[in-house]
C-alpha cells in the first residue's frame, strides 16, 4: 500500500495550558490534532498520577499532531510560544500516513 512521509509531534503539557495550546495551533493553521489525558508519569518533581488531584492546576495532557514536513516549523514556532516556560516535553518523530491529502 502507498504510504507518505510525515512528522508526528507529541507535546506533553500541563492541562491548564490545553486551551491555550489548542488556540495557538489553530492560529498556526494546524487543524488536525488529538488530545489525550495523561494518567501519570515521572519527571524532575518525581512520580505523579491523576488520582485524587483536586484542582485544574495539576495534571497533564498530550497533544498528538501529524503534519507534512514543510509545516513542521510553523507548528513548532506556535507551540513553543505556549510551552516555553511550562512543565512538559516536546518530541518529533518520523512517521508514515496513508492519506497524505489529510495532512
Amino acid at each position: 500500500m502507498q504510504t507518505h512521509k510525515a512528522k508526528r509531534v507529541e507535546i506533553t503539557i500541563e492541562k491548564i495550558m490545553q486551551s491555550r495550546l489548542s488556540d495557538a495551533l489553530m492560529k498556526a493553521d494546524v487543524h488536525g490534532f488529538t488530545i489525550l489525558p495523561v494518567y501519570g508519569g515521572s519527571g524532575r518533581s518525581g512520580l505523579w498520577d491523576r488520582t485524587g488531584q483536586v484542582g485544574r492546576a495539576e495534571g497533564m495532557v498530550q497533544f498528538i499532531c501529524i503534519v507534512r514536513e514543510e509545516r513542521l516549523d510553523a507548528l513548532l514556532t506556535a507551540a513553543f510560544k505556549v510551552v516555553e516556560k511550562h512543565i512538559g516535553v516536546v518530541n518529533i518523530t518520523d512517521c508514515e500516513v496513508l492519506r497524505a491529502e489529510r495532512f
Binding site: I16, M17, G55, R56, A57, E58, K85, H86, I87
Partner: peptide
Amino acid sequence: YIAVPAAMRVALPEANPSIYL
C-alpha cells in the same frame, strides 16, 4: 488550592507548585 494554583501555573509558571499546593 483550586483557583489560585491554576492561575499561578499560567501566570507564574516558574514558581514551584509542590510548595504552594
